[in-house]
Simulated assay, not measured.
Amino acid sequence: MISISSNLNIMIKAAEKASKSLIRDFGEVEKLQVKKKGPRDFVTKTDINVEKIIIDQLSKTKKNYSFLTEESGSIINKDNENIWIIDPIDGTTNFLHGIPHFAICIALESRSEIVSGLIFDPIKDEMFFAEKNKGAYLNNSRLKVSNKNSIEDCLFSSNHEGVKFSNLNMRYSGCAALDLAYVASGRLDGFFHNNINLWDVAAGKIIVEEAGGVVNDINKFKKNNINIRASSLSINDEMIKNLKNF
C-alpha cells in the first residue's frame, strides 16, 4: 500500500473530479471537429472550468494556500509560502484537435521548493505522482527512469524548436507534462525545452527526480521563461553536450 500525504491525497481527488468535465468536453470537441466548427472558444471555457474545479477543491481543505495558475495567474492568499501550481490542460492544442494526449497538472511548492506533483492523463487513466523523498508512481506502480547507457539507443522529446535543432532521436508530442512523466517512467530517455512556463514542468520535475532522474535547476529562471533539461543520470552528460547550442 502506497503511503501518501494529505496534501497529495487532495491533489489526486481534485484532479479526478476535474477530469470528469474534461473528458465530457473532449467528447464535445471531437464532435465540433467533425462539424468543422471552431472549437477554440469552447476549449478556453473548458480550461477555465477545469481550473475553477481544481481551485475550489484544493481551497476546501487548504483555505490559506496561494495559487499560481495558467488561466488566473497568481492568487496570493494568507499563506504565500505554500503555493499550488496548476495547469488545467497541458496539451491544449492536442485537446483542441481531438487528439487524446493531454494532462491535468498540479504541483505544491513549499518555501520555494516543489514538494509534490501529479500529472493525470484522464483519457488513458494514468496518474503519475511523486512526493519529495517518497518515490514516484504511476497509479500503484513505482516508477524508474530508463537505464540505457548509449545515446544512440535513446528517445528524446522536445518542442518544435528542439526537434528542429537536435540530431538526437526525437519526438514532439505537444504535451510537455506527459513528456516529463514518460521520462520518469522510462518510456522516454530525456526531455528538453526552452522558454517554457513553470506550471508546465513543476509537477514533472519532482516526478522525474523521484524516479531517479536528473533535472537542471529551474529556480534560476523566470517562471514564464524556463529552460528545462531532464533525463536519466546515465545519459544526462551526453544529452547536455548535444544541447550546448540550444
Rank of each mutant, 00 (worst) to 15 (best):
K60P: 02
K62T: 09
S72L: 13
S141I: 07
F246G: 04
E238L: 15
E16R: 12
K241N: 13
I104Q: 03
W84R: 08
G162C: 03
V208N: 04
K52R: 09
S21V: 11
K35Q: 14
F156N: 00
S234H: 13
K144Q: 15
C175A: 04
A14T: 07
S5L: 11
K134L: 14
N82K: 12
R142Q: 10
I85P: 05
K164I: 00
D56N: 15
K31Y: 13
N149P: 00
S19E: 13
F67T: 09
N94I: 02
E28N: 13
I106R: 03
A107S: 10
A136G: 15
L243N: 02
A176C: 08
F129H: 15
V115C: 01
S5E: 10
S3Q: 14
N80K: 12
N139D: 09
S3M: 09
N49T: 07
S21L: 12
K52Q: 11
G38D: 15
A18R: 02
D90R: 07
F221S: 02
I83Q: 03
I23T: 07
S72F: 14
I235G: 00
M1T: 09
A176F: 08
D56R: 08
S6D: 14
D200A: 05
S66Q: 02
I4E: 14
V43A: 05
L180P: 02
R142K: 15
T46A: 04
F246I: 06
N219F: 06
T93A: 06
E161F: 08
I151D: 04
V29E: 07
I226N: 08
N242P: 00
I55G: 04
D56K: 14
K13G: 01
G190A: 15
L108A: 10
N80F: 14
V43I: 11
H97G: 01
L155A: 00
I86Q: 05
V214W: 14
A203N: 06
E81M: 06
K52A: 05
I240S: 02
S157R: 02
D200P: 01
F42E: 04
M11L: 10
Y182M: 13
D90N: 14
D153P: 00
K45V: 08
D217Q: 06
I99M: 02
N227W: 12
L155C: 03
C175M: 08
S116I: 01
I104M: 04
F95L: 06
R229V: 14
F165W: 11
N147L: 11
H97A: 01
T92A: 07
P100R: 10
I89G: 00
D56E: 15
S5V: 03
S185M: 07
N236D: 15
Q57H: 01
E113F: 08
I55F: 05
P39F: 12
T93Y: 15
S72T: 11
